[in-house]
Structures are given as structure tokens and as C-alpha cells.
Design a binder for these strands. Sequence first.
DNA 1: CGGTCATTTGACGAGCATCAACCCCTGTGG
DNA 2: CCACAGGGGTTGATGCTCGTCAAATGACCG
Lengths: 231, 231
Amino acid sequence: MPAAAFKSVRALALFHDMADANFDRLTKAAYLQRFPAHVQLIEEGGAADFLHVVVEGCVELFASHNGRDTTMALVHPVSTFILAATLKDRPYLMSARTTMPGQILMIPSADIRTMLEIDPGFARAMVVELASCYRNVVKELKNQKLRTSVERVANYLIRQQKRHPGMEFALPVEKRALASLLGMTPENLSRAFGALRSHGVEVDGPMVRLTDIEALSAMARPNPLIDDFSS
Amino acid sequence: MPAAAFKSVRALALFHDMADANFDRLTKAAYLQRFPAHVQLIEEGGAADFLHVVVEGCVELFASHNGRDTTMALVHPVSTFILAATLKDRPYLMSARTTMPGQILMIPSADIRTMLEIDPGFARAMVVELASCYRNVVKELKNQKLRTSVERVANYLIRQQKRHPGMEFALPVEKRALASLLGMTPENLSRAFGALRSHGVEVDGPMVRLTDIEALSAMARPNPLIDDFSS
DNA sequence: CGGTCATTTGACGAGCATCAACCCCTGTGG
DNA sequence: CCACAGGGGTTGATGCTCGTCAAATGACCG
């Protein structure tokens, strides 16, 4: 594994408290692979043979049922996904595909489970990581159940704005995927952007500029218990 | 703490692998309390001072935002809730209230976190528990995003049926709370029950009888990756 | 230059919330 | 024992939100 990738994975909170020897052993058993855009990495219902780490690029987690399908989350570098299935040795609840070219580190689930047994620091880090994942999904469920679609769009934009220092930012994925993540159709996302023009939102292709955050916040009503990342 | 309560809590997977001395220490610091119905136990945004265990009765987890509110989950004995907030020492993301009289065991969060450090068996059990919680919320999010309200009701009934051996069963909570859990209004739940009559669903007050599970399943299309408890 | 695909816009309809009226049961106080 | 109030549940009427379908636009690519 290249030194840069090794270092960035090692820097993850999940692996940070791990003994050196154990981390080496884990990465020796792992595969770092390059993927083009729009490749399906895992399929819902499949066996959780690997823990995946997005080292570069972006991965979309999605779920299907009865002809419909929906984006569940977007995973950016450097973070893991499908941790829970790996740990419980249960089928994946979500599918995953790349949204752009990138690199994925794949660590055999069995090694993760072994490490959980023998490395207490790793077990503790895992507890914290899983608790964070859990809280993030709870927030997403609140987002879905307590807000209208326009409110979700507005708050999404405010969150993105916070992450980026500048005046404007680019949407990290196609609008169709974003719409699905926000629980709406692409058509409706388009209309939502239109409705938000009067609240200081300018959308031009993938670029977004918020010219009046006061006004936008007034209608979006952001809530730390739904929107904040840190907690 | 009464022996019966002690035993049932000890039997939880979360506490099962714990050293005896540690479990004793944990329960000595804990409070077992009796609560009447409709008492709010914790409030969204508050400090996570205790891990709660429902020993008897039923607890409703709910969340509020901007004048709206929604039921997030129903917790039945014997299980814990708000584990993640306790572990991360972060504010609660949900409020909790009793739906009927019952007993709650309250364990100081600080003791839980200490135990996580010193008892590796507990840390491992915690990983499994959190992974389960995570997967359950993911399923609920899929349920919300991929199904219509009538489908959610139908699948809820099928799930309840599986839990109860007999011909008929009682809804475990008021219909208004159930409606909120299923992401709909009480009025709409009522109409949904009406619409399901033609699929063999008979509702009389809190009692439900499913006279044609074949037909109901055909329209509900249950999915293990959304509805099964075990995974 | 033509084809494909994401996005946008408009028209329409389904799904669902809201509002209001009503029924029924329960508990309370006269 | 009865009158009454309160609350949950049901039903009907109405309208908003949002999904669906269709067509047009524009960008990108072979």
C-alpha cells in the first residue's frame, strides 16, 4: 500500500488507537483498489466480506425495494462504510457505488472481527465510531420525518456552506443523487431551487451561491440536533 | 435492586459478558425507579447523564422540531435506550416518555464509560449492541423512504403478527403514537386500516386480526432487509 | 453533426395533511 | 344516577405537497 494512503487511513479515529503491529497486520491483509466512476462495489443483501474505506473519490450508499430506490448517504474520503454489517457478520443493508473515480481500501471482515477481540483500543474506537454512525442516521431520520422537502434542501445548502470557506461551492454529486438523498425527485429538487431563489439561493449548474444566509436560515430553521456533524 | 430486575438486566446481551464484579459495581451506582404513564423521562438536547434500561412497561422515543413532532421508536422490556448519547457524552437526540406505568433502571453514564475502558467483554458487547441499533435505524429510514404509508402499516402488522403466536394481537400503543411512528397522521392510519380490510385486516379497537396473511403479504411485500429483527 | 443524458419546465394526478364534525368511552362532580 | 367535559378515534370535505409523465433545452462526447 502506498505510504500516503497508509498514513491517511491510519489517521482515522477508528484506527488511531490501534497498536502498530495490529494495524500493520490489518493492512497487509487488505486490498487497495482503484475504481472508475459508477461502479457498484457492493450489493444490498450480499455477505459483508470486507470493510471498505474510501481513500479517494466518493461513494454513494443506496437501497432498493419493490422497484423504487433511494440514496441513503454519500461517503467522502477518508471514511469507512458498512461497518455494522462487517461487525455483525450480517448481510449488507445498503448497496454502494462510486460516483467518481477513486480508491477504496478493502479490509477482510474476519480480520476486523479478530482485531476487535485482541485490540482493546480498537474496540473502544469502534464503539465511538458506531455511536457516531448511529447518531447520524437518527438525525437523517428526523430530517426526513420532521421537515418538508424544501426545508431539507435549504438546510442541506446551509450545511454545505459551513463546510466550505468561500462565497460559493459546488454540489458534491449529481443533482439526481442529491435529490434522492434528500428524499425527493430530481424534478422537485429543481423546483425547490427555484423556490429558494427568493431566499438568496443562486444555482448555476453544479455551483451554488448563498447571497442571503440570514433569509435562508430564517426559513430553513437549522437545528443542531439534526444538522450538526460534530455531535 | 430486586433480584428479578437484577436478573433480567444481567441477561441482556449487553451485560452478559461482563465480569461479575463490574456488573455489581454498575448496578450499585444505578437507580431502579417506578414511573406512571405519560411521564417524560428525558428531553431532546439534554445532557446524557444516564443510560436507561426499560425493565417493565414501554417507552416512546420521539423528536420535535419547528412545531412538529414524531415518534422515532418504541422501546419494550428488557432493552436499553440512548446508548449512543451516553457513550459519546453528547446531548440526547431524542426525548423519551413512558406510554404506560413501568420500571426504568438508570445507570450513570460516567460509570458506563468507565466500564467501557476496563471491561473488554463489555466493550465488545457494546460494539455488537450499537451495530444492531445502527442497523435498525437504517431499516427504519429505508422503510420511510421506500414505502408508502399504507405499505408501512401493512408491514408493521405482519411484523407484529410474527411476534405473537395467536390468531390476533393487541396494538402495543395508542393508535396516535403508532401513526406517528409510521410517519403519518392518526386520521390517515384510520383510513389505512380501512383500506386494508379488503386484504384481510380486521381492526377492532386495539385488537387486530389478520385473516388472510397471503393477501396481505402480497400487497405489503415484506423485505428481510427492512423488516427482520434478527439482522 | 447526431446521439445520449442530465436538467428543467409544465400539466396532471395520487398521496397525504388539515380542518371540522361526530361518535364513543371514561372519568368527574353534582 | 345523571349530566357533562375531555380525549381518542373515525369519517368526510378540501387543498397542499409532491410524484409522474411528457416534452424541451442544453451540455458533452463520439
